[in-house]
Design a binder for these strands. Structure first.
Lengths: 193, 193
DNA sequence: GTCTATAACCTGATAGAC
DNA sequence: GTCTATCAGGTTATAGAC
């Protein structure tokens, strides 16, 4: 809750995200995490209360950022559906670049959150998908988008965006604007001439 | 290797795929798996040699099917790039419908394969992506596809296809041809008018 | 083919010395 | 803030009775 700066704690969470992303939450023990930080597992508990708390720190803040951002975009009145869609795609790419490992954990390990966090996460994800769908609907009604099965389109576009971190892991140091442009074209224009 | 029919063994592997898909390979213990099959964990070892062998059975055959299929499509001489792409997309959707849980395991749990299988898996995945990329290249040269960053396009399209099982889990019993048509449109034509 | 019992080890987490 | 020692329970897998 509070935002006391806590360097060691952040270090632990960063390293955990990196390992979770690589091996999965269940495959990374506290001993393994501690080894990568050159301390003993028991020392971790001076900075965090539980393994699940680390996961929560990684996933929940990022999920809240996504939820808030798409809400503000989808409700803005001075943009048409196409512009909204481009802004969402751009946001996804930017977050992917800045929080690569955190996003990977959000995608792959959310089901290992504690019950309360997990419920909140699922709610936020539903809310996000619902806002995304609303923009598609708006675009179809404005005759800016083609007629389509919105459910499948939401899923298909979000799949590309959500797993973009995988590609970025294998192709680091790309020009940010190039990535944004290409993802916009892939998802909005398609590849056919 | 041999294809003796072995009903109980297949039952175990099916149930394991279902649980792995839901909770992740590491989160499903042999006791948990046994509980869902109404036997004791030790009895499982009369049918399989190890937990990892179950994962291998789930992932490797499916990976080989994908690899072989895209090879035969990409090398066929009587189809243009657009037709090849449509056939690959169709194949992905059909496999997703028929092997939903197996595909989920392939996507999420391949890193828990034994070293030998894991290496073979990675090779097959690279080969698959390389065939996919070649079809895009062919389409660009034939002036059938727009100019694009092929690496990003391969990733983006495959992301949608690979995680289609997630959507299918939440929306079962859809018309197969409708799914194929919509995925073709999403990935090839985009959503913009 | 399933069971009980058990081996050998790993798991998250805590107590208390320094 | 890190350490050693430890707890209580879970992990894969095997041995051997039935």
């Amino acid at each position: 809750m509070k935002k006391e700066p806590n360097q060691r704690r952040d270090e632990i969470i960063e390293k955990a995200a990196s390992l979770f992303q690589e091996q999965g939450y269940r495959a990374v023990s506290m001993r393994k995490l501690a080894l990568h930080l050159d301390i003993k597992a028991s020392s971790l508990y001076n900075h965090i209360n539980s393994k699940q708390e680390i996961l929560s720190e990684i996933v929940m803040e990022l999920a809240r950022d996504f939820t808030i951002h798409i809400q503000s975009v989808s409700r803005s009145l001075n943009k048409n559906a196409g512009e909204k869609m481009r802004e969402i795609i751009e946001m996804h790419v930017r977050v992917t670049i800045r929080k690569t490992d955190f996003l990977a954990c959000l995608n792959n390990d959310w089901m290992h959150l504690g019950e309360k966090d997990r419920e909140e996460y699922i709610e936020m994800r539903q809310s996000y998908e619902s806002d995304f769908r609303a923009i598609l609907e708006e675009g179809i009604q404005q005759n800016q988008f083609v007629k389509m099965d919105k459910e499948i389109a939401v899923f298909s576009m979000l799949s590309s965006l959500r797993t973009f971190y995988l590609w970025l892991k294998r192709n680091p140091e790309q020009d940010e604007q190039h990535l944004i442009d290409e993802m916009n074209r892939n998802l909005l224009d398609g590849i056919l001439k």
